[in-house]
Design a protein around this nucleic acid. Sequence first.
DNA 1: TTGTAGGCGTTATCAG
DNA 2: CTGATAACGCCTACAA
Lengths: 339, 339
Amino acid sequence: MRNHSLPTLEDVAQEARVSTATVSRSLNSPDSVAEKTLLRVQAAIRLLGYSPNFGARALAAKRTNTIGAVIPTMDNAIFARGLQAFQETISKNGSTLLVASSSYRLELEEEQIRTLVARGADAILLIGENRSDDIYEFLAKRGIPYVLAWNYRQNSDHCFVGFNNHTAAKDMAKKVLNLGHFKIGMISGLTHDNDRARDRVLGVREALAEHDIPAENLALIEVPYEFEYAGDAIEELLANNPRPTVVICGNDILAVGAVKRAKSMGLRVPEDISITGFDDIEVSTIIEPELTTVHIPHRKMGRIAAECLLAMRRDGSLSPSKELKPIIIERGSLCEPRK
Amino acid sequence: MRNHSLPTLEDVAQEARVSTATVSRSLNSPDSVAEKTLLRVQAAIRLLGYSPNFGARALAAKRTNTIGAVIPTMDNAIFARGLQAFQETISKNGSTLLVASSSYRLELEEEQIRTLVARGADAILLIGENRSDDIYEFLAKRGIPYVLAWNYRQNSDHCFVGFNNHTAAKDMAKKVLNLGHFKIGMISGLTHDNDRARDRVLGVREALAEHDIPAENLALIEVPYEFEYAGDAIEELLANNPRPTVVICGNDILAVGAVKRAKSMGLRVPEDISITGFDDIEVSTIIEPELTTVHIPHRKMGRIAAECLLAMRRDGSLSPSKELKPIIIERGSLCEPRK
DNA sequence: TTGTAGGCGTTATCAG
DNA sequence: CTGATAACGCCTACAA
């Protein structure tokens, strides 16, 4: 298992009886090489099983064709679909994807970003906008373009590719309120360090305010994005008096956990308690009843984020933000409150 | 967004009034540098905001500290949990993970592997063993260690970190048969190019044979790992006469799809039709009834695979294979056939 | 269209 | 413990 010193540009050059420069050109701009020469070089490359050395190439060309992404977690499906689309677009463009996950922890994310950059990532995908200015400065200083996905803001210096979490959540809340719900529970993800979660809470709050429902009518619990926590949370919410008739969840994972627990407590969903989700990931149609939730076009978001990033790297300029429109999907987990 | 030419080793050396060699040593083997000098160097590094250039480092050191992984898909949860654990272990060791997915396509996988290697991956995680010899030769020739996960074979030249799909599926089939089922349906993933799927089918077949059940009693359908396909498949199976009393599924995704469709056809699971899964991913406890399935210790597998890979890279020798033991988890989707 | 040659930022080998 | 200095493999003006 030793490193039988691989063939280099030089070896290929000798084999093809040309200079290393010509071999390099055959690789990077075949058009500028004579047909005959090109063929000879390619033959030599195949014969020797040559493939370029990444480090050397990165060093000389000052780019790696590598794009980094730091996502909060790979453990559940929230980011899976979007990331898959992102990666497909990236590799279709001849670049590779470097992934790291931060476990929703800011300091870890910062470290991962720096690592990716050190590893030569020449563009980066980040989730949301919530991180220290240091990092943005760090990236700016190195001229590394980045896209912030899963969120959207107007008039920002950043390039967002995502959706307005605030209005999306607000729309869902309005739908809930229009149905006649008056006493509301909400299970949110941890809002500390998470702008998406925070915006969703604010959206719900705003909807209540506009419907002249007192803020005390909203019982809010924050938990990590895990089934069990959501279960405990809904149990707590249901212990309130008067008990809420609906529980708005910050995402589908939480909603599924809440539905499961509610059912195991002997409640019927949605007759006894309505529950709504957010994201429209796979599980939302596996649970029974299926979740009424906010559909996010994850694949589209991933693809567009990739396109923006590639464009920014290519042109060296800031790409305009792209806003995607969430849609509420009505399935079975939300209905009118019982009289 | 300019590239204000970043500080180099040389800059740091000047600032700290030492040679570049000393700076390099301060970074890579701090112990071999005098306390005083070290402090001066570190101060300079901080002052200048220096961070080493990856390409140059890779070029000079002949290693990248990058580990690659090619998985069939990131789109569903099958590999998510294991990969997350893999990545955690990798990064705890100061290496980074490079991920690519092959969409279950062999030629794409080959391309991805070559790309990862070209990108400087100095060790690689692969799923299963089913690929051309060319690739194994390619890796061997470059001295790049690899681990094959999600499968296990004895007396192999490869390092496997996984489980015996054959016996795991066979055990499940035996449990089914011992319950008295006699007419069996099976929904498998596409076995072409997929050794895990193939082994699972073989395991089921073998169990039948040992129970003296004629091979014709097994109705087998192969489909891609997607809910809808599984739904169509079970519909087809249930149209058989006599109809099977149980459907063994190649994984949980298929099982969930099958359960959903069976229920929507008005059948009760498991009273009218038993259905079993494989993997024990999240969805298996979300569907109702919860899936009786084969539990695979995904996180453990990911962690161990990483440890093996790191060891192989460190020692330059083949690491022994590790076998993990699947366990059948009994939940509600399997019961005795009705008389 | 092709070749020459300098340089990219580190590491590693030797002396000192 | 520290400092020169030669690789490392490729890219890219610049020349021819």
